[in-house]
Amino acid sequence: MLMLPALPSLATEKPGVAPVIDLPKPGPRDRCPVCGMFPERYPDWTATVLFQDGHADHFDGAKDFFKYLYDMPKYASGRKREQITGMGVTGYYAAEMIDAQQALYVIGSDVLGPMGHELVPHPDMYDAEAFMRDHAAIKILRFEDTSMEMLLGLDEGKFDWG
């Protein structure tokens, strides 16, 4: 399994809670580099990667965000992971951009994102567990628990891998 190394956080941290972070919002012409959709149309699902030079890539969900990170040569030609200064995903209940590395992700629920089955982000275990109960979800994952195999499985509606 390919591991995604951690980056420094942009926000003040509370133990066990992914902090709200300030990243650029997608504009009307921004397209998801993975699927080509327009993330601005899906503000409740937006994920963002910010680079040192100020360039930001936006995604229509956490699933495409992770696919991008696992295959940057394909989706971010000429850019390297070490150039990333911030990564955020939109938390499900509060709809605020939270630190992607500290978020918890729930899979296998009855909630679908713009690209179908998704990793649904939450800032803490309380929200993630409540979401699991409310939406018949299967599993809670941390940032480092993801894999490309799992992401491709979600595309096919599979929630058990490896």
Rank of each mutant, 00 (worst) to 15 (best):
M3R: 15
L4Y: 08
A6E: 14
L7I: 05
K14E: 12
P15T: 15
P19V: 08
I21L: 11
P24A: 12
P26W: 04
G27E: 07
G27N: 03
R29E: 09
F38G: 08
P39V: 14
P39W: 02
E40F: 14
R41K: 08
Y42S: 03
D44C: 15
W45I: 15
T46E: 03
A47R: 10
T48C: 15
V49W: 06
L50T: 00
L50A: 06
H55P: 03
H58S: 04
F59E: 04
D60R: 01
G61S: 07
K63L: 09
K63V: 12
F66Q: 01
L69I: 03
Y70V: 00
Y70Q: 12
D71K: 05
D71F: 02
P73C: 00
K74P: 00
Y75P: 01
S77V: 14
R79E: 05
K80M: 11
R81T: 01
T85D: 13
M87E: 05
A94R: 10
Q101M: 12
Q102E: 14
I107S: 14
G108N: 00
V111G: 00
P114Q: 01
M115A: 03
G116T: 10
E118N: 07
V120G: 07
V120W: 07
D124I: 09
Y126D: 15
D127R: 10
R133N: 09
A136D: 11
A137N: 09
I138D: 12
K139A: 12
I140W: 01
L141V: 06
E144D: 13
D145C: 08
D145P: 01
M148H: 03
M150V: 15
G153D: 08
G153C: 02
L154D: 13
E156G: 02
D160A: 13
W161M: 04
